[in-house]
Design a protein around this nucleic acid. Structure first.
Length: 258
DNA sequence: AAGATGATCAACCGCTACTCA
DNA sequence: CTGAGTAGCGGTTGATCATCT
């Protein structure tokens, strides 16, 4: 039987059935088309009925997941864009592992996809830096170093303002007004403040003191593996300018907390 | 060329929340 | 109120592909 995995057709032998006779494992083209046909005709919901009446030996849960994560017509495929990466970082800093909630802000992306992105890219980078992904150090690095850089890259590539995100609809005087909020472009870390307007001392002021984040090991360039955010190397984030800026931010935070 | 290792992502699992009889 | 059925969420697993040695 043929199944489609990662865009290629492959023979797959290990589709099995559980004690209840439900099939498990990758979906076949035939199963996909049965599910799509049924939902096209009858609509979503009542997943156990879908499974039964569509002639699928699958659990309702499995049908729901397959539809939402793969078969839905509005599912977006392909790489996570720079804008989406920035949104994920920002929204995760607000909401934590609320993948479904984050996914709602990214049309066409599924919670599964975002979760996978976070686990495979972001957590990996935290590990490489020997930081806990939830540590203040790593979060500050994201907020004050990586996200501004990402924003700069977006602006450089588009050469136009970043699209605001429509977050709510309010009704006023009988008219629907869409209130747009630049929810992920926090002024506190826009590029103008993070780099352009910040006075960076000459390199001689701090060349000797490569900044070690407390409890956070800055890896040698040889330790860097894949490229979070599509940058050439994570090392470029941890250059002296950004280190200096991050150090200032951290010391400001500390003084505020006194 | 082949085996080892790492990265990716679809799918499953367990749990909680919600609905309804 | 309670229990069954269902939907949805987040964590985890495992198959496959890609890259490295």
């Amino acid at each position: 039987m043929e199944v489609n995995m990662k865009g290629i057709s492959a023979s797959y032998q290990s589709v099995e059935e559980d004690d209840m006779g439900f099939r498990k494992g990758p979906w076949t083209d035939e199963e996909d088309s049965k599910l799509v046909n049924y939902i096209t005709t009858h609509g979503e919901g009542h997943w156990n009925s879908v499974a039964r009446y569509a002639g699928l030996k699958r659990t309702g849960k499995s049908c729901r997941l397959r539809w939402l994560n793969y078969l839905r017509p509005d599912v977006r495929r392909g790489n996570i864009t720079l804008q989406e990466q920035l949104m994920i970082l920002e929204l995760h800093s607000r909401w934590g592992n609320r993948w479904s909630k984050i996914a709602q802000q990214l049309p066409g992306r599924t919670d599964n996809e975002i979760k996978n992105y976070w686990r495979t890219r972001v957590i990996k980078q935290a590990k490489q830096l020997k930081c806990d992904v939830n540590s203040k150090q790593f979060r500050d690095a994201m907020r004050y170093v990586w996200m501004p850089r990402l924003l700069e890259r977006i602006r450089a590539s588009e050469y136009q303002p970043v699209q605001p995100v429509i977050t709510s609809t309010i009704t006023q005087s009988g008219m629907d007004i869409q209130e747009s909020e630049t929810m992920w472009v926090n002024p506190s870390y826009t590029s103008s403040e993070s780099s352009a307007e910040v006075q960076v001392p000459s390199s001689s002021d701090h060349t000797e003191s490569r900044y070690d984040l407390p409890g956070c090991h800055v890896a040698d360039s040889s330790e860097y593996g894949s490229d979070l955010f599509g940058l050439e190397s994570l090392e470029s984030f941890w250059n002296e300018e950004n280190m200096w800026f991050l150090q200032q931010q951290l010391s400001d935070d500390l003084s505020l907390n006194k």
